[in-house]
């Protein structure tokens, strides 16, 4: 029997009248049970708005969404019993200790006193917060707070989790840990929707990625298929300076699938046959008297996908110059 998707979203619309923003514009997607769905998108794309609707915090203006087959609009109370939310801003009580926060969430999830207490201690240990368990959250560092927030989402062991930028503000070690925990949860059958600005994170974790911009899905697929759509290989050439890189870009444009991208003294082109293009590029640049300081062939990253689809890099990615236009390409 084909299973229903764990998360089904159909044509969600949300308009914030205050800012006259159409935050969601017929957003539709699905996530299969026991998988991780990565939601990528630039600032203001509507990621948080989508998460808040799916977790019944706010209501959509139009469209439907169902979690494990339960409609978020018709039976929000039931949805709340099967989801865990770690929102973009840590949703914790600053005046309580870490243990008290988790205990409170357990009790409000209608767990017994004993189980709630045991679960709190278990999570504190798992998230390496035992040493700070009895300190008020006011005294926690940003990363500790974030960890407690993630722990709070897991208290009732919900089968569906929403993580809105879960690793923003975490150090690399904790980020890795968080990835490992998430993978372990998913192996246990949990479905996770996570939004992220870190393409590396989506690449590493997500079974499926959707790219959202202006409240709609503009691309969808596995990280691998999204990258494959871009063309096979990225060729990265480093020259002596920006001026030479610009010249080289013009020179190499004919062998590239799309206009080359120049940043500082390097340029990036997208090619079908990496090795062949590499040697062609060497020859052409040699012939023009441009010294090549470095030449790298690599798989396209989700970053490239993002750039291609939205016309700008994801937040946090290294800033790049805009792609060279046809006019620039025509220059010598």
């Amino acid at each position: 029997m084909p299973e229903r998707p764990a998360i089904e979203v159909r044509d969600l619309v949300k308009v914030f009248t205050k800012g006259r923003v159409r935050a969601l514009d017929e957003l539709s997607f699905e996530a299969a049970a026991g998988t991780i769905l990565g939601v990528l998108g630039p600032n203001g794309a509507g990621k948080t708005t989508a998460v808040r609707i799916l977790s019944t915090v706010i209501r959509p203006d139009a469209g439907r969404a169902a979690i494990l087959g339960i409609d978020v609009g018709q039976d929000p109370a039931a949805v709340r019993r099967i989801i865990g939310l770690a929102g973009q801003n840590a949703a914790v009580d600053e005046n309580l200790s870490g243990r008290q926060n988790l205990l409170m969430i357990g009790r409000l999830s209608h767990m017994g006193r004993g189980p709630a207490r045991r679960r709190a201690d278990e999570l504190l240990e798992q998230f390496e917060l035992t040493h700070a368990a009895n300190r008020p959250l006011k005294t926690y560092s940003g990363g500790m707070r974030r960890r407690l927030d993630l722990a709070a989402a897991l208290v009732a062991e919900p089968p569906v989790l929403f993580f809105d930028e879960p690793t923003t503000g975490l150090d690399p070690h904790t980020r890795q840990e968080m990835w490992t925990w998430t993978e372990r949860l998913v192996r246990g059958g949990t479905t996770v929707l996570l939004t992220t600005q870190y393409l590396e994170e989506a690449d590493r974790l997500a079974d499926k990625v959707i790219v959202v911009d202006h409240g709609r899905v503009i691309a969808e697929g596995t990280p691998a298929s999204l990258k494959a759509d871009l063309g096979a290989t990225v060729l990265l050439v480093t020259l002596e300076d920006h001026e030479r890189a610009t010249k080289a870009a013009a020179l190499l444009a004919p062998i590239a699938n799309r206009p080359p991208v120049v940043a500082d003294s390097s340029l990036e082109i997208n090619v079908d046959d990496g090795p062949k293009a590499g040697s062609e590029a060497m020859r052409a640049l040699d012939g023009a008297g441009l010294a090549v300081l470095g030449l790298v062939l690599r798989e396209p990253s989700l970053d490239d996908v993002f750039l291609r689809l939205t016309g700008h890099r994801a937040e946090g990615a290294i800033a790049e110059e805009p792609p060279i236009t046809a006019a620039a390409r025509a220059a010598p």
Binding site: R52, S55, T56, V57, A77, R80, R81, I83, L85, G87, N89, A90, A91, V92, D93, E94, I105, L108, S109, H110, A152
Partner: peptide, 17 residues
């Protein structure tokens, strides 16, 4: 204005509480 209210809204608790 506290963040924790956002979480309360996603919990199966009695809202009036």
């Amino acid at each position: 204005q506290k963040g924790v209210i956002e979480r309360f809204r996603a919990l199966p608790m009695a809202r009036a509480a």
